[in-house]
Amino acid sequence: MTGIEPLAVAAAGLMGIGLYGFCLCRHAVRRLLSINLFGNGVFLALILIARRLPDGPDPVPHAMVLTGIVIAVSATAFGLALVRRQARTRGDDET
């Protein structure tokens, strides 16, 4: 395989942009979004890596991605619940 694989660039780019967002965003939801961007980049990379087997995709990275997605979503959901709670607490404080 020669030349540049565009989706590899996309994977790396997602990770870079995710980090960029994490550095510069202040709001927690935005940071969560950035983290998920980074995570999506990682997953994309893993799927690209899985294609290296001669016959059919490598199931191991695929399994990793699947596990990773569930973990990322669970953690993000928890994070969002925290954000809601934070907003509520602040709201309570203000009143």
Partner: peptide, 26 residues
């Protein structure tokens, strides 16, 4: 809640960065 959120954000990013490394090594 603030502390927990901060903890979660860093922990989540940390483990994804780790996972990126794992991907490359694999």
């Amino acid at each position: 809640v603030d502390a927990a959120l901060r903890y979660l954000l860093f922990a989540l990013l940390g483990s994804l960065i780790y996972l990126a490394g794992v991907a490359l090594l694999y």
